[in-house]
Simulated scan of single mutants.
Amino acid sequence: MLQDEGGVAVVSGASSGFGERIAQVLSRQGYSVVALARRADRLKALAEQDPRGAILPVAVDVRDRKSLERALGELPPDFRDISVLINNAGLSRGLSPVQSGSADCWREMIDTNISGLLNLSGLLLPQLVSRRSGHVVNIGSIAASYPYLGGNVYSATKAFVHQLSLNMRVDLHGTGVRVTCVSPGMAKTEFAEVRYDGDVERANALYEGIEPLTADDVAEAVSWCLAQPTRVNVNMIELMPSDQHFGLGFAGSRSSRSGGADAA
């Protein structure tokens, strides 16, 4: 038995990068998609460009549980029977070592990568459990498993996502709800620009001489997990560029020479 097609999928962080592409791919496959993010203009453009008109833009901050609960409660009838949750919203700020890091940056990563995921999961899991079917896909990172210079707090938040995904499987055993963690390596999206506070030149330098993953690669991995028969639970997928040697940079690249790396 396959995951029910034509259902409703909620995708967080859908205004760019992995989330945007996941929303597009799921719509193409017949899902109605609730696209969540803070940037209303980006979401509006995403919805307007969808050929099926099946993407509903919802501007909300996943860190704000009350606003999130209100937004989900106001979904139109056609977008209420949710069967898929993609916890994609996440970010990284800075590359400073812990001893000189910014408490504000730490808090932003923790609030988004951890609390935001918990807020959305806590609000939607009861509905999936009550329908006795569904699939949660949490977007993790190879940074959870392979340390790199400056990764500290970001990597720790993604280690939380990995461990929570496994424990969600335990909690949801017997409910018919599946849980997967998809963990990308270095991918070229706006992620690095956010980490470097909009410094595009510095962000682009990370990819010199290598071919990183794309948002398409990650979206297709998510799609494959959802498409498996319901008897199959894909616990974890780890995907990396062929040029990347775990989390420690790239052979011959500027990031490798400096000892650092950027991970999704």
Rank of each mutant, 00 (worst) to 15 (best):
V232I: 14
R178F: 05
G260N: 10
A71P: 09
L164N: 01
Q163P: 14
V58D: 10
D41C: 02
L85M: 05
R107S: 05
T230S: 11
I114T: 09
Q3G: 11
S121E: 10
V200D: 03
E69K: 15
E48R: 14
A47H: 03
G94Y: 08
V153E: 06
D217V: 00
S100Y: 11
K66P: 06
A215F: 04
S253F: 03
R178V: 01
C105P: 04
S96A: 15
T157R: 03
R21I: 01
G90M: 04
Q244T: 01
L206N: 15
I110T: 08
S165V: 06
S96V: 02
A264N: 14
F250R: 06
A227H: 03
R195C: 10
G101N: 07
R28W: 07
S102F: 05
F18Q: 09
I114D: 00
P184L: 04
E238M: 04
G209N: 03
G13Y: 12
K158V: 01
Y196L: 13
D41G: 07
S223R: 14
F79P: 02
V179G: 00
E211M: 12
Q24I: 15
A35Y: 00
S133H: 15
L72V: 14
L75D: 01
M240D: 00
G209W: 02
H135Y: 01
R21P: 03
P126M: 07
G185F: 01
E201C: 05
R169M: 11
D199E: 08
V170Q: 11
L226Q: 09
A9S: 13
S121C: 07
G198D: 07
S242A: 13
S115L: 10
N167R: 13
F79W: 15
V10R: 10
L75F: 13
D41T: 11
L125V: 14
E211S: 15
A221T: 14
E48Q: 15
N167M: 05
A59Y: 01
V10M: 08
Q49S: 13
V182W: 02
V34C: 03
E190M: 12
I22N: 09
L123V: 13
I22S: 13
P57E: 05
S258D: 14
G259C: 08
R131Q: 15
G134R: 07
E5G: 02
G249D: 10
R38M: 07
M1Y: 12
G150E: 12
D104P: 00
R107C: 01
